[in-house]
Design a protein around this nucleic acid. Structure first.
Lengths: 337, 337
DNA sequence: TCAGTTCGTCGAACCGGTTCGGCAAGCTAG
DNA sequence: CTAGCTTGCCGAACCGGTTCGACGAACTGA
C-alpha cells in the first residue's frame, strides 16, 4: 500500500499524489478529490521512514530519560507526560532514551543514527558534558535545568536558588532560628546535580542574610532515608524547629520521623520546600511548598525546541521559573522555647 | 557522512561496507579492517531512517501511554522506566504514544506510518478496541492487563482478583467483619478498567465466602478524594474497621481522613490493598499491601514482545502475576467492639 | 495569429541504506 | 590443462517517499 499503488488506482503519477497530500504544489480540485477517495478507501498513510529519509526530518524528538533504577520522582512523570502531549500537539513523537550506564551508546543512537530532530535533556548537572557536546555540534536541544556556564543556552529551569531562599525567608518570618536543609542524595549533589546545588546555595545565602543557625543534610530518595535523616537532624541539634527540603521521595519519611520524635507538624516543627504539588498534597498535614510546575516546564521545553527547529539560527532563549510558595498546613510560628 | 562516503574512502563498494558492518556476508579480514578504520575515524553511524526503509524494521517499539491530564500513578512511571531499559537492552528504542482524546490519530501514526515494529499497551479495559484491533490485524502487541475475551492473547497482567481476595482474607483472618473497598474513580470503572473490575470482583467474591459485610466505593485519583471517601465510608457504616484499596493516589487522603475521624491505624482501623511499594512505604504507618511489581511487568512485557517479533508465528503467551502481600504496619486485629 | 504566461501534471533523480545475482581470481580435483 | 568450486567483491535494483525541471494545454494580450 505505497504511494505508487495510490497513484496507479487514481490514474496519476506518484509525484502528483505526493503534492496532493502535502499541498506543496497546486493540484486541480478534481484530481485532488480522485486521489483523496483512493487514499480514504485504502486507509493509506505514508511511511514515516521513507518520508524521514527523503526530507531529512523524522518528526520525532528525543527525551533523554534519567537512568532507571533511580527512584523516579513524581515530577519526572508529570514532565514526561506533558512533553509527550505538547509534542503530539505539534505532530511530533517522543522517543525515550535512557541515559544510563553507557549513555554514550544511546546518545549515539539518537544523534548518530539521526533518529530524532531534536532533544530534551532531563536531570542536568552543573558540568554536563551532554549539554556541552550537543551545544558544540549545534544539535537542537533544550535542557531542563541550566549548567554552570550555559546561561545563554537553550533551557527551561526552576530557580531553585530563589525558591530555597523564599522557603528560608518564609520560615524566618515565622520566627524559626534553627533550620535544617534536606537535600537530594549525596551522590547526586557530588555529581553536580543542578537543582541540589542551586537549592543549597539559596538556602545557605538566605540563612546567612537572616542570621540563622542552619545545617544541611543529604538524604536518600526514599521514605526510610527521610526518616533516618530526621533522626540525624534532631540528634545533631534538638533545638531545630523547621526544615526545607527538595526531596519529594523522602517527604513521607520526614513526616514519619518527626511523628516518631514526637514533633507535631506544624505546632512543634515546620516543614517546607520545593515539591510537586501532588506530593505536597499527599502528606498530612499538606505541605506548604513551592510547587514544581512540571507540566508547564514540559510544555515550555517543547515550545523552545519547536522554535529552535523552525528557525535554526534564532538566538538562544530560556525560561527561568519561580513559582510562588503555596501556603498549606505544614508551617507555623516557631514555638517560644 | 553516508555509506557511499565510507566506501569511497575505504576504496570499496557500498555493498561491501554494508556487509562488513552487518556481517551478513563474509568479508576479508583486511578489507574489514580498512573499512572499520574509516568508520571509526569519521564516527560514522548508519541512518536509522534509511535502514528502516530498506529492511522494513524500525528497531523501535511503541508504548501506548495513558492520557496526560490524568494523575499518573507511581506504578506507571516505574513501568515506563523498566520498559525503556529492557528495550534498550535489546537494542530497541521506545516511542511514546499518547492515547488521549483522539487516540485514533496517534494510533494511526504508530501503525499506519509504520513508526514501530511492535507496541506495548497500558491501561487496558475489559472491552478494549485497541487490543481487539491490533489482534485482528495481527500487529505484534503486548497488553499490560487482559481484556475480557483475550485470555489467550499476548499480555502480562496482575491478578487483581486474587490479590483483592488475599487482602480480604488477610483482614478476615484478623477478625474484621465490616470492610470497605476503595476502587479507582467511577469513570474508570464504568469505562471497563481491567484492574478496577477484577479487583472489585475478587473483593466481592472473598467477602461473600467469608460472610463479611462490605461496601464498595469509587474514589478519585487524588488525596482530597481519598479523604472524602473515608468520610463517606464512616458515614455509611461507622462500624467499618478496615478497607482495601487499589487507589495509590488516594492513599495519603485515606490516611488523612482516618486521622481526622479519630481512627488510629492500625489500632482502630486496618488498611491494605494493591499498591506500588514506593507508595506503600511513604505513608505512616507503612501499608501492608500486595506490591505491584511494575518494573518486573515492564521487563516481561518487553520480553514477550521481543519473542513475538522474533517468531511471528509463535503461539500467544502471557504472564499473570500474583505478588504476595508484604506485611508492614497498617493492619492489625479487629478491636473487640 | 502567434509569442508569452499560467496551470496542472509527469518523469526522473535522490535520500541512504540492504540485498541479490554475477563475476573474476585463486584453488582444488580429475 | 581444464572443469568446477570457493572466496571476496561489485553493480544494480529496491525500499517509499519528496522535489526539481520540463512539458503540453489552455489562456492571455498584442
Amino acid at each position: 500500500m505505497n504511494i505508487g499503488e495510490i497513484a496507479r488506482l487514481a490514474g496519476v503519477s506518484r509525484s502528483t499524489v505526493s503534492y496532493a497530500l502535502s499541498g506543496k504544489r497546486p493540484v486541480s480540485e478534481e484530481t485532488r478529490r480522485k486521489i483523496q477517495r483512493v487514499v480514504d478507501e485504502l486507509g493509506y498513510r505514508p511511511s514515516a521512514s521513507a518520508r524521514a529519509l527523503a526530507n531529512g526530518r523524522t518528526s520525532t524528538i528525543g527525551l533523554v530519560f534519567p537512568p532507571a533504577g533511580n527512584h523516579y520522582t513524581g515530577m519526572q512523570l508529570d514532565f514526561i507526560g506533558s512533553v509527550v502531549e505538547a509534542a503530539a500537539a505539534c505532530d511530533y513523537d517522543v522517543l525515550l532514551s535512557p541515559s544510563g550506564a553507557d549513555s554514550d551508546r544511546s546518545f549515539q543512537r539518537l544523534l548518530g543514527e539521526r533518529r530524532v530532530d531534536g532533544a530534551i535533556l532531563m536531570e542536568i548537572r552543573l558540568e554536563d558534558d551532554r549539554v556541552d557536546h550537543l551545544a558544540s555540534v549545534g544539535f537542537p536541544a533544550v535542557a531542563i535545568g541550566r549548567t554552570a556556564h550555559n546561561n545563554d543556552g537553550w533551557w527551561v529551569g526552576l530557580d531553585h536558588t530563589a525558591l530555597a531562599e523564599a522557603c528560608v525567608h518564609h520560615l524566618a518570618d515565622l520566627g524559626h532560628r534553627r533550620i535544617a536543609f534536606v537535600n537530594r542524595p549525596e551522590q547526586l549533589l557530588r555529581s553536580g546535580y543542578e537543582s541540589a546545588h542551586h537549592g543549597l546555595e539559596g538556602f545557605t545565602k538566605a540563612a546567612a542574610e537572616r542570621g540563622l543557625t542552619v545545617r544541611a543534610y543529604c538524604c536518600g530518595d526514599d521514605a526510610a532515608s527521610g526518616q533516618s535523616c530526621v533522626e540525624r537532624i534532631l540528634h545533631d541539634d534538638p533545638a531545630t524547629t523547621a526544615l526545607v527540603t527538595l526531596n519529594e521521595a523522602a517527604l513521607g519519611g520526614l513526616y514519619r520521623g518527626l511523628a516518631r520524635a514526637g514533633r507535631h507538624v506544624p505546632r512543634d516543627f515546620s516543614v517546607t520546600g520545593v515539591v510537586a504539588s501532588r506530593w505536597a498534597e499527599t502528606v498530612t498535614p499538606q505541605l506548604t511548598a513551592a510547587d514544581v510546575p512540571a507540566a508547564e516546564m514540559g510544555r515550555l521545553a517543547v515550545d523552545l525546541l519547536m522554535e529552535r527547529l523552525d528557525q535554526p539560527d534564532a538566538p538562544a532563549r530560556h525560561h527561568l521559573l519561580t513559582p510562588p510558595i503555596s501556603l498549606r498546613a505544614s508551617t507555623g510560628p516557631a514555638t517560644s522555647d
